[in-house]
Computed example of a mutant assay.
Amino acid sequence: MLGMPSHPLPNSSEQARADTVIEVDRIHHGFGGHAVVNGLSFILTRGSIACLLGPSGCGKTTVLRAIAGFEPLREGRILLQGAVMSSPGFAVAPEHRRIGMVFQDYALFPHLSVADNIAFGLHAMRRGERAARVGEMLALVGLAGSGGKFPHELSGGQQQRVALARALAPRPELLLLDEPFSNLDIELRERLSLEVRDILKAQGTTAILVTHDQHEAFAMADEIGVMHAGAIEQWDSAHNLYHRPATRVVADFIGQGVLMPGRLASPHMVTLELGTLQSREPLGVPPATTEVDVLIRPDDIVHDDASPLQAEILHKAFRGADILYTLRLAGGGQVLSLVPSHHDHALGERIGIRVEVEDVVAFRRG
């Protein structure tokens, strides 16, 4: 992925590179008077996996459908391999875009065998070439020997593998995945997302995933665009979205945490109930700002019996290897702390904590 720094996003046309597969350039889309996508831009380079991540109604699936050619544009352009696919009043038909798509409901043909489903888009090939490609795809997705079965004979995870094989079989320039794991249970969803990433990387496939599940996004994508109200709030790596969110929207949506009131002591220093935090970089707040909210993640609060800083346990959520504690400080502020589960404390108990914030994130109060 051609790296796009934190909000605000630059003009995508300034970032074009020779290995660009798709360029989405300031696109707008809506229904009647309701705007769904507002000036959204990004670029994806060959072999990269991107994700549009956000809650229901943020416009992410509409963007995917516009890329596929199913939705028209009011403004902007979508280019594939440098050629315009969509612009206001113009659209290349979906079947001529060399784009593969994996749907949420798999969309397999129930009356066709697994092999025939995979071969569906390979009509231009000779019979022997088509059979060889189907066999290659079955092996790729771990279903060798299952070509004669029908979709109803497969599990949900196996059906999703067939859908992926069918989409990859014609060697598309770009693969789109629309909430591909949402019908699967959590354990299978997590495992399959990692396996699908390995498959896509092995094939050198350029792909865009749409999901509301940040764990899927983190598992699969090289870079992630967090969407809100039809626009991208931040396009970045999973690490930066979690540790260096550019906006409150991203801070609220990614991971867990609390925003604690604080006061800037200098461009690099902020004081709050937990103490004074020092930032390596200037805190990115507007000039003359003094009152701020500081993002504190559960992993910033470390359980330490020897620490003089004490907090009362208000709530606890057992998560197997860890317990997520909600803690109340002496001054009334609350924080979260993720603690190994062998440190099992009772509600109302006071425990020692220390603060280890690697990246200080602050927003202007309000």
Rank of each mutant, 00 (worst) to 15 (best):
L338G: 01
K201T: 07
S12N: 00
K201W: 06
L154Q: 05
R74F: 01
P172F: 05
L108P: 07
D222K: 05
D19G: 01
V270Q: 08
V258P: 03
V134F: 02
T20V: 01
R328M: 10
H212F: 02
L309P: 03
A66K: 09
Q81T: 05
G366L: 01
S266V: 06
A115D: 09
P151W: 00
L241T: 01
L277Q: 05
E216F: 06
D293N: 13
A131F: 01
H315A: 13
E153N: 07
V292I: 12
D252Q: 10
A16M: 03
L9C: 02
V226N: 00
F181H: 11
L259N: 04
I22R: 00
L177T: 02
F363Y: 10
I353T: 11
I254P: 11
A115Y: 03
R130Q: 14
A18S: 14
P55R: 13
T45C: 13
P170F: 06
P10S: 12
Q15T: 08
Q234C: 05
T276D: 07
Q278V: 09
I254K: 07
S113D: 02
C51V: 12
M260I: 15
C58H: 12
F90D: 08
P110D: 07
T206C: 05
G69L: 04
S266W: 07
A163N: 11
R166M: 05
R297L: 13
R364L: 01
L283Q: 08
S182Q: 09
R248C: 00
P308L: 06
L241D: 03
D222Q: 03
E153T: 00
L327I: 09
V141Q: 13
V292P: 13
E312I: 06
G255N: 07
A202Y: 08
H345Q: 09
H215E: 13
M125N: 01
I353S: 07
H34K: 14
R126N: 14
G352Q: 10
L140T: 11
K201F: 06
G145A: 11
G148N: 13
I353Q: 12
Q203C: 14
E358I: 04
H34S: 12
Q256R: 14
A246D: 00
P287H: 03
H215Y: 08
V21D: 06
D300F: 04
A167V: 04
L309A: 12
A93I: 00
S307L: 05
G57I: 02
M1I: 06
